[in-house]
Design a protein around this nucleic acid. Structure first.
Lengths: 151, 151
DNA sequence: TATTGTTATACTCTATAACTATA
DNA sequence: TATAGTTATAGAGTATAACAATA
């Protein structure tokens, strides 16, 4: 039986292991699709959050605007995403997945689904919402820490 | 109310979001510590799985032996890990975290712990073990997919 | 003036392959 | 012969900064 503090330490270790496994997954999908890691991350962002401004996408990924231009160049060249004109603002560029891009995401679906194989089906909804809670705090906390570091 | 299939799809989406948040966290820790992403991943592996042979560590990270040499050079230069001689095999090099390396891991502990802030304490042990189950399948499945792809 | 994106340059990290030393 | 690691070279991806177009 663990004390509450020990339980939390163990949960942190588990989260570290899962983060590393996620990075493993990322490299594997990149290698299999012939894309780079950043390109594969971009496809995942576009799949989950929908179309984005080019620099917004770069912001998601933590890269500069110059790197964003080069990234979207590569995504277009490989046929997984495309640039579209913004309806009102002629400075802006909207980036959207192509069919091929959506297909790439679909291909990894069963692979990720297998990760839940040992979870009782009735527990899935709760687990799912907890994964999102963890993700949200992890993300906002990362932004907060970086902002505090830069001041 | 969701059907079982819908629940699984939702869980997969949640896992994608968590993987992206983990990559966010990785970039933030790298930036704050002044290390690169791969170096920070290496520190995390060494913290969780203990000392490793240099090429074993490179294997964890999915990089070549040449890149492993350069990586450990950087880790030593920055004082977060050190090379040691293997007791019996004079070809091998053991890589181990320094105090400074352990300190780096400790600094991100409270940050990760905050991610569990909204989870009822009594649910932590179950959640923790499920995170590990997901991580393990994700990792082995990634290796399997890459191996199948390379044949 | 501020914002969005592009271009040019230099730097970091990685893969590949040839090599050395040890098993 | 096979394995662990090193070195040299080339290529991919990124940051930085200067720039153009639009708001």
């Amino acid at each position: 039986m663990l004390t509450p503090a020990e339980s939390l330490d163990d949960a942190v270790r588990s989260l570290r292991v899962l983060i590393l496994a996620g990075e493993n997954y990322r490299q594997a999908t990149a290698q299999m699709s012939g894309l780079g890691v950043t390109e594969t991350q971009a496809v995942s962002y576009l799949s989950i959050y929908g179309e984005r401004g080019q620099n917004d996408l770069g912001g998601d990924l933590g890269i500069s605007s110059g790197a964003s231009t080069a990234l979207v160049d590569r995504l277009e060249r490989q046929g997984v995403a495309q640039r579209y004109a913004h309806p009102h603002d002629r400075r802006r560029v909207i980036v959207r997945l192509t069919e091929k891009g959506h297909g790439l995401v679909a291909r990894s679906h069963s692979w990720l689904a297998a990760s839940f194989g040992s979870i009782p089906p009735e527990d899935l909804p709760t687990l799912s919402s907890r994964l999102r809670q963890i993700a949200q705090v992890l993300r906002t906390e990362s932004e907060r820490q970086v902002a505090a570091d830069q001041e």
